[in-house]
Design a protein around this nucleic acid. Sequence first.
DNA 1: TATGAATGAGATTTCATTCAT
DNA 2: AATGAATGAAATCTCATTCAT
Lengths: 235, 235, 235, 235
Amino acid sequence: MTAPDPETDPEAGTPPADAAPARRHAAGADPAKRAQILEGAARAFLEKGFDAASMEDVRRAAGVSKGTIYVYFADKVELFEALVADKRDRMFADVISLLEEDLPLRAKLTRFGEALSRVLCSEDVIRAQRIVIGAVARMPGMGERFYRVGPSRMHDRLAALFEAEVAAGRLAVPDARMAAVQFIELVSAGVWRRRLFCGPHAGVEEAEIVRTVASAVELLLRAWGRGEARQGLDD
Amino acid sequence: MTAPDPETDPEAGTPPADAAPARRHAAGADPAKRAQILEGAARAFLEKGFDAASMEDVRRAAGVSKGTIYVYFADKVELFEALVADKRDRMFADVISLLEEDLPLRAKLTRFGEALSRVLCSEDVIRAQRIVIGAVARMPGMGERFYRVGPSRMHDRLAALFEAEVAAGRLAVPDARMAAVQFIELVSAGVWRRRLFCGPHAGVEEAEIVRTVASAVELLLRAWGRGEARQGLDD
Amino acid sequence: MTAPDPETDPEAGTPPADAAPARRHAAGADPAKRAQILEGAARAFLEKGFDAASMEDVRRAAGVSKGTIYVYFADKVELFEALVADKRDRMFADVISLLEEDLPLRAKLTRFGEALSRVLCSEDVIRAQRIVIGAVARMPGMGERFYRVGPSRMHDRLAALFEAEVAAGRLAVPDARMAAVQFIELVSAGVWRRRLFCGPHAGVEEAEIVRTVASAVELLLRAWGRGEARQGLDD
Amino acid sequence: MTAPDPETDPEAGTPPADAAPARRHAAGADPAKRAQILEGAARAFLEKGFDAASMEDVRRAAGVSKGTIYVYFADKVELFEALVADKRDRMFADVISLLEEDLPLRAKLTRFGEALSRVLCSEDVIRAQRIVIGAVARMPGMGERFYRVGPSRMHDRLAALFEAEVAAGRLAVPDARMAAVQFIELVSAGVWRRRLFCGPHAGVEEAEIVRTVASAVELLLRAWGRGEARQGLDD
DNA sequence: TATGAATGAGATTTCATTCAT
DNA sequence: AATGAATGAAATCTCATTCAT
């Protein structure tokens, strides 16, 4: 389901780490060192951005030598792309899994919406998105992969859910994918975009997220909810 | 109404060109040359991004000498901020003015939504937004000003419109501002975010925008429309 | 006596200012404007040094346009050399004139020594000397002219005085010029060199100068004084 | 006695080269490379002066890359200050040591005076002094350190010697420090100052130095010498 | 003749990348 | 295989000088 996309998985092609209990890894093939570098890179890039962070910053944060970084990654761009690929997958998997839970529609949408909104608008993730967006001009492939693995996959899952609900007679959406896209937009309506452009506004956000998601759910159900899904809507 | 905010208007403070019938402009005060530099800067920055575009790129695109650029702008950051301030105001004013037109609600929302979505998702504006977002970490003020003059002002106008419609009995939204924020999010649902991360997908976008805006209007009216505003909704 | 050395007088060759009461001067020939530029240059160079002072600093201090400066002086170096030539002459003339006064030897040497030391060690003159010395590598002629017009001329005058005193039987120096050189060195012994390398030490200098000159006079007269010139020396 | 002043010793703080038997030096810690850079800097600065010599000149003279220079020295000023500190200490130590020799007063003063005068008036040292003096306005600390380590320390040593001679009945100076300052001024009387302002006058200097120092010694002893120290003075 | 906006060569400094150890 | 000192291209910015007005 979240099997690594060979095109985007930088580890593809390296011998399986456990093939032999070798004491020594081939050049650039020690997964622990690779992870260590990525961790340092994450710290350095998140703090300063892609251009402003120097390879020296990365080296210092990772605690390895510069030469080693270049054994594992061909250049700064490849390191950054690998880093994004790495974080990306982790980030979205958890949120998507919320859609698999067995809950009433309204509750499921609410939990999913809040989780997604919290993640997307958290300081670190906002910074990461800013950096990725800012780098799209120079690394177009990376942006597209990010979108495909993240938002786009989310749209697919949610659309499938909506189709099931339509089949079950609890929703009357004429276009499940459009509705899914709209819902995902609505759960961070006003918050995500603002956070992208503005610094964090001291702590107000959790309440805002709850309110925004509730409003998104209500808007959706009021427009397209049927049967039990309309319960509690003062019509 | 859209009078230039003195704090954000980069041209504010330059002596009026007609104070004296001087043929010669003061240093850094020739509006034509200033515009020429900004035009070159726009080309250079839009093509490569803030960091990747060098002042030499700007110079070449603008067709002036490096020294001249530094007569008009103290440094690269100031040049970029001036450029953003310059484009920003022009960009949003037109769209907002569509809300003043005398049209039925559904038509007005559709026209406004399409215009906004077209602007926000056009190649140049997307590039500009990517660069601004990518630069927020280093120039926080600029991002905030952009948001305030653009999206935020839009929210205000649309919320006012919704309140008037509520008073007129054509809408039943419980929270006009939330609804405004949601609508603005919906008119480019799925498109804006995708464009931020991905390159242009040759030509498909106009149709997508029309479809998306129509869906946004329907969702809103289906949920909160009253009286004549519900006409045409197959309930 | 202090007639302008044609080689060093930058005004040489310009038509006499009063030849005709012309309303308009030839290009670069208005002595008032020339003086105005030199005055501004003095302020700018004394404050920042030759390299650190920009022609813009000079222009601002002088209150003329850049173009005008270049009408009067071919380049920055020529301006500086003219400035030095200008100040130089004024500076030394007053001190030398003290040697012409009709006073007993001891008093004359004391007055002359103190005046010389005060001038040479005053903040502005120290700054000027630092700048000239620092510029010798690039403008060797200027340093030599400065030395010839200043210290060297001083040596000549004082040597002549000493010879007269020898003839009068009040001094027994075997080498009048050497004695003159020594005396001039002694009147600012320890002070001038220190001031060249160090910043001003709040106010202590006047007392130090008096003490130093007194000691210089005593040393000279104790070694070479004869007759009445030895009065007051506790032998 | 001439132990390096930690504040002014640029090599202080570098890890001892033998802490580990490492073949490889830490960044900016290879003394040979450091010396190579300083050597190049000396050539470049002595030839052109501080401002006129570019880092490119230094790089060329040193035969290293520009990046390497900036590994060893934070910027141009720090490089220059390190260079001055480096030469300064070497320069004065030798001369001062001459005062420790066991010789009759007259011979000791003569040898010391000639050595000092030769050093201070040699072409390279004169150039160095010009540059330091020219840079005092921008780097006041450096000028003061130069004076303290050089002339000022010299005054102290010589004053101590004079005091010992007074105690031994061979000198009757009323103020040993003043006499020391005077003597140091006298040994290069007329030469040092002239050299500061003027270029080298082919080879005449050695004879001039001998003559000047002899005259200085005679002046001092004639004024203040007692007992055996007066031998040879035709009174 | 005086002006000052424009010029562009050149200055200092940074940093992604390499390669001898 | 890992290291990190060295590299040098390229970036930003300054300023002496020119020339159209």
